[in-house]
Amino acid sequence: MKNKSIKFLGFCLLLSSASLVVGQTVSTPVVGFSKESLPSGQHFFAPSFIKPAVYSGTATISGSSVTGLTLSGSLGLTSFSDRPNFPTHYLEITSGSYAGTYYDISSNTSNSASLAQTPNTSGSVTVVIRPHVTLGDVIKADSGIGEYSDSISVYDNSGNFASYYFAGGMVTGDDFATPMGHVPVPPGKGIGINLGGNIQITNSGQVRNTALNVPVYPGAVNVVGMLNPSGATKLTSLTLGQQLDAYSESATLYDSSGSLALVAIAYSDGQDPTDDTFTPYNSTTSPSVQTKGTMLVNVGSAKYITVPPATN
């Protein structure tokens, strides 16, 4: 951890402009930025800031369709003909028992959207729609990332991952030519980074002030990131103990020196997070997911891991 530090973290309160938010609810998001040094070596990294909402208000969910929205422009997948396409925006439910759960938008009209997944809820809810943070937002030329040599890994839901590189001043595919900066980094999800030298990642955006349900899948590399951009998150501040299957599912924490040294493997006794002898952690003994850190979650069935808000 000693090699990894937030060089500067700025916060300021900013009243949302009504022109930025089309819906009814106008909040006062905290915005900020951080510059974080990652030493040479290997890391799992998750951006913790989010982008401003393009819609916030009520909606009606029926199956994978959402109506009652006021939208402008295309919020669906990118429409490139020379490279893979990815979702650009996601809809997050902000009320009820599924608050904090999000779904990619496949397509939209001016007042409706189709979701890539079917929510477990229906009827009238409040939602927020935001653009995804992308690889191009996270890895920029001024980060000092090594062209051709340093790699970025993005994990899917079935145990595979794709590798991306930096060449010609942009994120590329493994042909070092196809622009791939539009690959999304979903909320609460992390990426893998393999570095030949030190880099500095500048992150900026809004700080989440609500909890997030991060989907995790069996057999997948579930890199779950914390939302707090300025401090470590103790495992006991999560609801991990109730969300992991007792004695079998786990969360692995690594250090951020670049060596991916093991910090702890946490299990659950059905109520609390435990160590690997199934002794429950308390607020004193609990290991922490480091600042801007991640944990690798290993599950036997698909579920959500709830990550507390940055302002918790």
């Binding site: 290997q42 051709y148 040599s149 590798s163 393999n194």
Partner: peptide, 13 residues
């Protein structure tokens, strides 16, 4: 690299 990461072999290295 470690599990679940990628390594690029750059010829000029």
């Amino acid at each position: 690299p470690a599990d679940n990461l990628a390594k690029s072999l750059v010829i000029n290295q």
